[in-house]
Simulated scan of single mutants.
Amino acid sequence: MDLLDFLRNRRGVAKATDLNKAGFSDRALARALESGLVSRLKRGIYVAKGADPDVVAAFRANGRLTCVSAARFHGLWTLPGDPEGLHLSCGNGLPRSGVVNHAPCIHPVHPFLPIAGAADVLLHALRCQPELEALVLVQSAVSQALVTLEFLRAKLPGNRNGRARAILDLVLPRADSLLEVLAHTHFVRAGLRVLMHVQLPGVGEVDCLVNDCLVIELDGGTHLEAKQVKKDQYRNNASIRGGRLVLRYYYSDVVHNPERMVAEVLAVLASREAGHFGPPRSRPDWLTAS
């Protein structure tokens, strides 16, 4: 592996000590600097062209990426939208322009990149982010077995962490996508009885069963493929044959228009309670015609 490949494997940035440990001599580093493909970010830090800008910024600020700024490095779900400022743990509490400075990291960190470990990332997010943004981060970490809810609760004692612990109460035992945890939260907040990943005879596993009568499926991008669409429609038929209505929602519904989604679910449930989906009171003409 040459020096540039080594840097690219480290998001484009490395400390001189790490380069030396990897066997790159001062002469090799000098040649790379002369070529213009590598530059000195600051004393003891070298950066290649095309380096990850967040990693570069963290090295420059002597901080570690954390909270939402570190989510992608741990494979955590996030809601759309650009976070306000770069979230770093700089450890000194001094204000920096364009930086949201978090508490010092107290758990194991990335071995060579300026990135907080998953535990600190989640604890910082629970104290910093709005409820749903923090929830999807924690849900994805728990689903990947990066941390446990018990571990996080133990790290959040006292009244000042009451809001953070309340977010942990919304985490599901299993969630295959951020759509599931968001939909579950919105429906529960609307006062509905919600079961997730329910096995129905003749249908298979459905995403949500609301009030034991309404199946709700949450469709990602793969559900738009022709083969999957046909399969989903047959599943809809099977659900209705079994006496349950079906609604399907997509990413834009759950993430961008949750109020409209919940209102529609409530309207369907109200119609069902009013008997609008039951048998007609009189026999229609099309049944009596010969």
Results as ranks from 00 to 15, higher is better:
residue 4 L to V: 10
residue 8 R to I: 12
residue 11 R to G: 00
residue 11 R to P: 02
residue 15 K to T: 14
residue 15 K to I: 11
residue 16 A to F: 14
residue 16 A to P: 01
residue 16 A to I: 14
residue 19 L to C: 07
residue 24 F to R: 14
residue 24 F to N: 12
residue 24 F to V: 13
residue 27 R to C: 08
residue 30 A to M: 11
residue 36 G to E: 00
residue 38 V to R: 11
residue 39 S to A: 09
residue 44 G to L: 05
residue 50 G to M: 03
residue 50 G to I: 05
residue 52 D to Q: 06
residue 53 P to N: 13
residue 53 P to Y: 09
residue 62 N to G: 15
residue 64 R to D: 13
residue 72 R to C: 09
residue 73 F to A: 14
residue 77 W to E: 04
residue 77 W to R: 10
residue 78 T to Y: 00
residue 78 T to C: 00
residue 80 P to E: 02
residue 81 G to C: 05
residue 81 G to Q: 01
residue 81 G to A: 06
residue 88 L to C: 10
residue 88 L to P: 12
residue 89 S to M: 10
residue 101 N to Y: 05
residue 101 N to G: 11
residue 102 H to W: 05
residue 103 A to V: 13
residue 106 I to S: 15
residue 111 P to W: 14
residue 111 P to F: 12
residue 112 F to L: 12
residue 116 A to K: 10
residue 123 L to G: 14
residue 129 Q to C: 02
residue 129 Q to D: 00
residue 131 E to N: 04
residue 132 L to H: 05
residue 136 V to W: 00
residue 142 V to Y: 06
residue 143 S to W: 01
residue 149 L to S: 07
residue 150 E to Y: 01
residue 152 L to N: 03
residue 162 G to E: 00
residue 168 L to W: 00
residue 173 P to I: 09
residue 175 A to Y: 01
residue 177 S to Y: 04
residue 187 F to N: 06
residue 189 R to V: 01
residue 190 A to E: 02
residue 191 G to F: 02
residue 192 L to Q: 04
residue 194 V to H: 04
residue 194 V to I: 10
residue 195 L to C: 05
residue 200 L to W: 02
residue 213 C to Q: 14
residue 215 V to I: 07
residue 215 V to C: 08
residue 217 E to G: 04
residue 217 E to A: 03
residue 231 K to E: 01
residue 234 Y to N: 07
residue 235 R to K: 14
residue 237 N to D: 10
residue 239 S to C: 15
residue 242 G to F: 03
residue 242 G to P: 06
residue 244 R to S: 08
residue 246 V to G: 13
residue 246 V to S: 13
residue 248 R to S: 09
residue 261 M to S: 07
residue 262 V to R: 10
residue 270 A to F: 01
residue 275 G to K: 13
residue 277 F to G: 10
residue 277 F to P: 11
residue 279 P to C: 07
residue 281 R to K: 15
residue 282 S to Y: 11
residue 286 W to E: 10
residue 287 L to F: 00
residue 288 T to A: 06
residue 290 S to N: 07
